[in-house]
Amino acid sequence: MSVRSKLTLLLALIFQFSSALLAARAEEATEKSAEEKTAPTFLRIHENASGKPDALQTAIVRYADPQQPGVYVDLVGAVHIGEQAYYDQLNEEFKNYDALLYEIVAPKGTRIPKGGPKKNGSAVSGLQNGMKDMLGLEFQLEQIDYTPQNFVHADMSPEEMAADMAERGDGFLQMFARLMGAGMVQQTKGEDMNAAMLMALFADDRQLRMKRLFASQMDDMEGQMRAIEGKNGSTLISQRNAKAFQVLRQELNDGKKKIGVFYGAGHFADMHRRLVEDFGLQPQSTRWLNAWDLTK
């Protein structure tokens, strides 16, 4: 068995074990806030006329205040692995903003080099490359051009994140426990996930089946993020969002009118609430981009 095949099997076994573990635990679910209940959808699976999935899509939702003509904030949803065409389209979209705020836990002002950070031989790097090859997709950090002058780092530094997590007692084990309680990976939708995973691994169209399988899990991104947040928020979502929106406030105060916020789609239910409650903005329109092709 090749190294790649072993890695694919290992990933499948991890996913399979996580499914069983998460489904076995039942704890108190987190309720949506009133604003989150009215929030737009930011990630979905699109189906064709026959009801078959043909794309995993992310949204670009525009927020504005009629009393401030010409000023708007777009929440531009991201998935961190996707089709080459998806990232090419995003690179074109980003040219239209006065400021494009982006996420990466890194020192203040970090600018990602073209082609992404320098690769290394770590286990994490190997796992990432295995996932990329398994699904036939590309990495966001390698395909998005972060070098234009309108790109603005809007995230915590590693020191800020560590300090906030320590203050809140918000470790990764705690977040994982919340996911377990909420049943992040569901044995639902009329499908036995273990059987579906094994069938996908040995199918002739393995990449397509694996993409559809992972997409079906990502389709409940909102519920997964609520589980991570818990009742009192989390460093990973709400606190990083607060940091990002400090930067957003500064950009607006500096006279920027066309602003994009490029973050993982799971951050956006909380960001929607902040835009409505703290900035007095309302969603005006939604456009959809195809992140994954689920037909081939």
Rank of each mutant, 00 (worst) to 15 (best):
V3K: 15
R4F: 06
K6C: 13
K6N: 11
L11S: 15
Q16R: 12
F17V: 09
S18H: 10
S18R: 13
A23R: 13
E27H: 09
E28Y: 01
S33C: 04
S33F: 02
A34I: 05
P40V: 13
T41C: 14
I45K: 11
K52N: 05
P53W: 05
D54P: 05
A59M: 07
A59V: 12
R62K: 06
D65W: 01
P66M: 07
Y72L: 03
D74P: 12
L75M: 13
V76Y: 09
V79S: 07
H80E: 03
E83P: 03
Q84P: 08
Q84W: 10
D88H: 06
D88K: 05
K95S: 04
Y97C: 00
L101G: 14
K108D: 11
K108M: 08
T110N: 06
I112D: 02
P113G: 05
P113F: 03
K114N: 04
G115V: 07
G115I: 11
G116R: 07
K118P: 15
G121R: 14
V124M: 15
S125R: 15
G126P: 11
Q128Y: 12
M131E: 04
M134K: 00
L135Q: 02
F139D: 12
Q140F: 10
E142L: 08
Y146N: 04
V152I: 14
P158N: 13
E159L: 14
M161F: 11
A166D: 12
G169E: 00
G169T: 00
F172R: 00
L173V: 13
A177R: 09
Q187L: 07
T188G: 04
K189D: 09
E191H: 05
M193P: 15
M193S: 11
N194F: 02
M197F: 05
L201E: 07
A203T: 07
D204T: 14
R209I: 00
M210L: 12
K211C: 07
Q217I: 03
Q217A: 02
M218V: 08
D219C: 15
D220V: 10
M225T: 13
A227C: 01
I237R: 06
S238Q: 13
Q239K: 03
L248G: 02
Q250W: 10
E251Q: 14
D254L: 10
K257D: 03
K258D: 00
G264A: 04
A265D: 03
A269I: 07
V276R: 09
V276E: 10
E277Q: 08
D278I: 06
R287I: 02
L289N: 05
A291G: 09
